[in-house]
Design a protein around this nucleic acid. Sequence first.
DNA 1: TAGAGCCTGGACAACGTTGTCAGATGCAGG
DNA 2: CCTGCATCTGACAACGTTGTCCAGGCTCTA
Lengths: 374, 374
Amino acid sequence: MLDATSSYKPWIDASPVDEQDRTRIVPETIRRADRTPGNRYGNRPTMKDVAARAGVGLKTVSRVVNGEPGVTPETERRVQEAIDALGFRRNDSARVLRKGRTASIGLVLEDLADPFYGPLSRAVEEVARAHGALLINGSSAEDPDREQELALALCARRVDGLVVIPAGDDHRYLEPEIRAGVATVFVDRPAGKIDADVVLSDNYGGAREGAAHLIAHGHRRIGFIGDMPRIHTAAERLRGYRAAMEDAEIPVEDSWMSLGVTDPERVRRAAEEMLSGPRPVTAIFAGNNRVTVTVIRVLAEEARRVALVGFDDLELADLLQPGVTVVAQDAAALGRTAAERLFRQLDGTLITPERIELPTRLITRGSGELPPAD
Amino acid sequence: MLDATSSYKPWIDASPVDEQDRTRIVPETIRRADRTPGNRYGNRPTMKDVAARAGVGLKTVSRVVNGEPGVTPETERRVQEAIDALGFRRNDSARVLRKGRTASIGLVLEDLADPFYGPLSRAVEEVARAHGALLINGSSAEDPDREQELALALCARRVDGLVVIPAGDDHRYLEPEIRAGVATVFVDRPAGKIDADVVLSDNYGGAREGAAHLIAHGHRRIGFIGDMPRIHTAAERLRGYRAAMEDAEIPVEDSWMSLGVTDPERVRRAAEEMLSGPRPVTAIFAGNNRVTVTVIRVLAEEARRVALVGFDDLELADLLQPGVTVVAQDAAALGRTAAERLFRQLDGTLITPERIELPTRLITRGSGELPPAD
DNA sequence: TAGAGCCTGGACAACGTTGTCAGATGCAGG
DNA sequence: CCTGCATCTGACAACGTTGTCCAGGCTCTA
């Protein structure tokens, strides 16, 4: 249960640029019980306190804390003692303000709980870590507004860079930020209406290969179930499917295609529809991992053997009967590549935006090699 | 490839408290190409700039930006114009410093790429979002030092709260932070040597139920493959397994148990060993999802039908032949519960640390109901 | 012994924001 | 016309850190 007293997007809504004269919600500050009387940070000692206790100047403490040279061992010892005694820890908020670098990068993705994005996020984190940066991530839940909200909130926090898995198709709202120096890389889907670094999988090629694979095994009536075509990956995969069909000179019937369908219930209905009717499909191409999972369930209940190729790999896919043939993309490689480009931007090594496409890999495991059952 | 020129843990190593006189690595600042001449934030306008342009005072801009009352519509319009023209965005670093709240919480987990932690992390994020806070997460990779490093780095950034999935078993290093007001909740595993809020699954009860389930189906020689017992969850599950065996008055033989084993190669060997020998096990209890996956693979190659119960649910587990019986825990509920307690701490509603155990659920799908094959 | 040069330590300002407080303005009523 | 009050606005300090710069004490050399 979520706390009913909290407003939904407090901090973010305080941001002024997006909309003009809508009523603003005052940021809800997170209240905290005053545990000890003291300053706002719950009575935390500052360098000043340490300096006073050690009987040295403020800057000397700073030097010790940061391992800068020019402090006698004796002085250093005294300062260290004071630090330990007071339990001092440097306030990086202040440090950030002063230095102008936050040593943190933001990642806006679709859903952290999706098994595809976990490894991607982890890969970004590892690269960030290697550069001494922390990672802040947020899920857009496929909502363009929420994506923008998140990305701009991250910019307000002055993340040094931003990795975005777009939910929307217009990213002009990031232009001022990029101009102001926020390194930005888009992953998995291209940026909309701005020129920026993009790292993608070869969705078109992968889907084309996958569909061609089914065709090569004798299928002609091949169904396609995918997400909304406004999502780039979905559109590209659909295009790949169509291209393969066209290559084989198979006219695609509308009833074979189901777009914008991703929740289990509707995928199920879509699949069942394709499989009934007078001219049922003999194979299905599933446009993403979630669709694939549901289709597998549907096919498991079918009497007929229907072929299946899915986009995105699944754990255990090899252990099913039959094993699930998939077009696999390397989520970790996507994340790593994007993050590395991000830091190259920050280095100043990288100037012109590029579009990188990572290859996909067809993994045959059985389900895609079933012959048509009609 | 990681940038070879970057030191590994630059920012974190600068933290002074942990160790005494080891050489400190100077934080590597993330360099950035100077895109435009200007201030440190890559020429970002500040409120001062906006004020100058709008011909008003600094504080008036602040008022407009934060939607505070007491600004005439005309003045507000002028300020908004200046904001839009300059592309101003409030610098939350400064705001944080001034307000003493960061509106962000930290999550230290084991591995973001693990399908168990994805949903957990997402659940924490959702709660944080409902409270207007952002989530910073980091992976400890099961390394206690790295856990500490991360947690303290987050504290240095003055996160308002910390959700920790412990890798180590001594968290006294967090005492000064907690005393200083950092709300702290441990999830999935208990805190070591400090008194703190803890949210756990009932690992003991779940494992006991799982093992008892196998016993109830006639098994007596039941193998156990789990992680290092220094990991609390692993130890508890082992304890549950032992308890079930004891309840049934079955003496456990050493060769049935394999502890501290989690990488596929070694799990495979361990399983194969249990299944060979003169008195092979007829069932295996797998101590976590990664172990389960590997055991499934091994069993798929076996001629005999060996029963299996795994701890943690798996996607597609129902579609295997036979379906995999598991003791499921609700990762999202763990995360949600922990995060909610965290914010209750911040509210001041919550004072005394508690230990919460969430129940597990035995899901029978076939593999756990196979009779012994001897 | 004086002068130059080095080493250590500290005073001070600045980073960009918000809280406090007092000044300015406008209007109503005596 | 002046007073009192309400409304709007802005000057200023403070948050905790780091960069700059200078002072004082020391050593070394001529």
